[in-house]
Design a protein around this nucleic acid. Structure first.
Length: 350
DNA sequence: CACGGGTA
DNA sequence: TACCCGTGG
């Protein structure tokens, strides 16, 4: 799930204007994006899209159409895939597994009483992104000519690293962890747009991409990245999911703002016995995550239309006409995008 | 979520 | 052109 920093970023987050990322690379936390497609691209009763053999295709649908739309908007997406999770994430992963099991039980009940709305909700909650799905997504992107990066460990950390090292202009993820990992610019809601249903209500809200600039956030809060990491640890991260009982974003921020670090917090403000986790190790996971320099160029290549059709149409039963249409749009968008690189610098004269 | 045909 | 809505796989 990541760290809940919503309350702390409220004042600095702003709507993304696509013009500001035109022609720029954005490292996308692939797992995060694919998971959202998998959860969202479903029939009203929650059944995911599947080919005739019953293999789920929701993730491929999302990757294919959304990515082409992004490239048409002028963005060069760089999808970063997860490697092996850090051992300290085990508890969080176990927690997620239990959550899925609960959702599956609730789904069965909803099915029995035939409540379509509930069925959809619990299907979404119980969706699982398999290794095979991640692999298929990566394969599709490669056939499309879209750069991918294999992270040694956390994809989000690698995406942030690509960002602060200058390979990409921003990092895209739903999770605020990106900023803890060092991203300079975080874009949320890049891969999901449109309307989203409010939980348990019949109200739909417009979801728009938003930007959070790390430096602006640090300045606004008057703390450093290191200090924000300590704030996050108090609230609870993927590496200490429980956080500290009774401490939320506001309190955590106040404590670190006052004391600068977890070890400096006065005993009267926080009973040290509450800190049962190895916070120094967690700090290191954010400050010195396992990352690696990209081995490929991270440039858009030429799509292999034949193979994309082979995969989507022949193997996964996508509509041939739609796929061909979209491939044409993709080729056109790539050409235009490559034109931007050559033309910049000339534009100012015209 | 996204497409595309229909409708105003 | 903007939105609605049924369907995609």
């Amino acid at each position: 799930m990541g760290v809940d920093l919503t309350d702390l970023v409220l004042d600095v987050k702003r709507e993304l204007n696509f013009a500001e990322i035109k022609g720029k690379k954005v490292s996308i936390d692939a797992y995060n994006a694919i998971y959202q497609f998998l959860a969202a691209i479903r029939q009203p009763d929650g059944t995911p899209l599947m080919n005739r053999e019953g293999k789920v295709t929701s993730h491929l649908n999302g990757i294919f159409y959304r990515t082409v739309n992004l490239i048409e908007e002028g963005v060069i997406p760089v999808y970063v895939f997860d490697g092996k999770p850090p051992e300290m994430k085990a508890e969080e992963l176990e927690k997620r597994r239990r959550f899925k099991e609960e959702a599956e039980k609730k789904l069965e009940k909803a099915k029995q009483i035939g409540r379509i709305e509930e069925m959809r909700k619990y299907s979404q909650m119980s969706s699982r992104l398999t290794g095979e799905m991640a692999h298929q997504s990566k394969e599709l992107l490669e056939l499309m000519g879209v750069p991918t990066v294999q992270a040694p460990s956390e994809g989000e950390a690698e995406a942030a690293y690509l960002n602060y090292s200058g390979y990409t202009f921003a990092a895209a993820s739903q999770d605020y962890d990106s900023i803890l990992f060092g991203a300079t610019r975080l874009i949320r809601n890049l891969t999901i747009t449109g309307k989203r249903k409010l939980p348990n209500k019949d109200i739909y809200v417009e979801i728009k991409p938003e930007v959070i600039e790390a430096d602006t956030l640090f300045k606004k809060l008057g703390i450093t990245r290191e200090e924000l990491i300590d704030v996050a640890i108090l609230i609870g991260t993927d590496y200490n999911p429980e956080g500290i009982k009774g401490i939320g974003p506001k309190t955590a921020y106040k404590l670190i703002k006052t004391y600068k670090s977890i070890e400096n917090i006065n005993k009267k403000d926080l009973d040290p016995s509450q800190i049962y986790f190895d916070y120094k190790k967690i700090r290191d996971l954010f400050l010195k995550p396992q990352v690696s320099s990209p081995s490929s160029s991270l440039e858009l290549g030429s799509p292999d239309a034949e193979k994309v059709i082979g995969m989507l149409v022949k193997e996964f039963d996508f509509n041939e006409e739609r796929v061909k249409n979209t491939l044409n749009r993709l080729e056109k968008a790539i050409k235009e995008l490559k034109g931007i690189g050559r033309q910049t610098g000339l534009d100012q004269w015209f």
